[in-house]
Amino acid sequence: MPKRNKNGEWLQQTVFVGPGLLAFAIIVLVPFLLGFYYSFTEWNGLDLDKAKWIGMDNLHRIFTDDDKFWRSFWFTIRFTAITVVLANVLAFLLALSLSRPLKSRNALRTIFFLPNVIGGILLGYIWQFIFTKGFKTIGELTGWPTFELPWLGTPQTGFWGLVIVFVWQTAGYMMVIYIAAMVGVPKDLTEAAVIDGAGYWQTVRKVTIPLIMPAVTVCLFLTTSNAFKMFDLNLSLTKGGPGTSTQSLAYNVYAEALVNNRYGLGTAKAMIFFILVSVIAITQVWLTKRKEVEA
């Protein structure tokens, strides 16, 4: 009897966890672990089987002789810093306005969220048209020089073009999270603050924001990690150009491997990319844990 029970336990473990474990192992775990090996090899796209061990050469090359990688690194840092601030400020202000009793509140929430359901690839193509043809027409109609710039034609404006589209895409998502948190703020607390003579912005700063801190953390983390990993938009809006001036890190990894066919070098970069993303994630977990202890 006990033996049969044990068999039953094994069978259950296999049935319930087995399929997931198998898929996870094949698709994520094994490729990820292989990455550590391939990072130290020379491996070109044509000869998938013949990866040649070359030790630290790839890392050496990345750290001493790869300006493009480090330029894309700084590009990504700047892009992340700016979009995180802009997207969250915009999302927070939208959430504040749309949690007040406005008549068109529901329709407005829908509209601000809308860009988010469309993928980065299609959004990038849509905005490629706006920046090249739409802006030109607006510029001709209004005479505003901002619209007559070659938006996707210079590194500076290309950068801001990506920022605009990313913020446009992300703000609605964060707005939804902020609204959900604001709904949870007890009315009597904000009303008490108003009775005590606090103005609107004072109430927001001293009552609302401290009470929605968990949502703020979630949104900051989501935008940071999404911006840092931006790829689709980069591919369809600027293709990293002009030249390679607007390449994000993810795009640089992709281009190294699948455009230049240097798989080994690409994998080494990919592993560095992974370490950078993990640092962001660990920082976030650490910050959240610390907050929870305080609270």
């Binding site: 698709i27 994520v28 490729p31 292989l34 992709y254 690409g266 992974f274």
Partner: peptide, 26 residues
Amino acid sequence: NKALFFCFIASMTIPFQSVMLQLVRV
């Protein structure tokens, strides 16, 4: 099972670009 769950959580930080080439191989 606890270790597996930890693996699931930890794996969420892996960006797609970090596994894509090896994935093609596998």
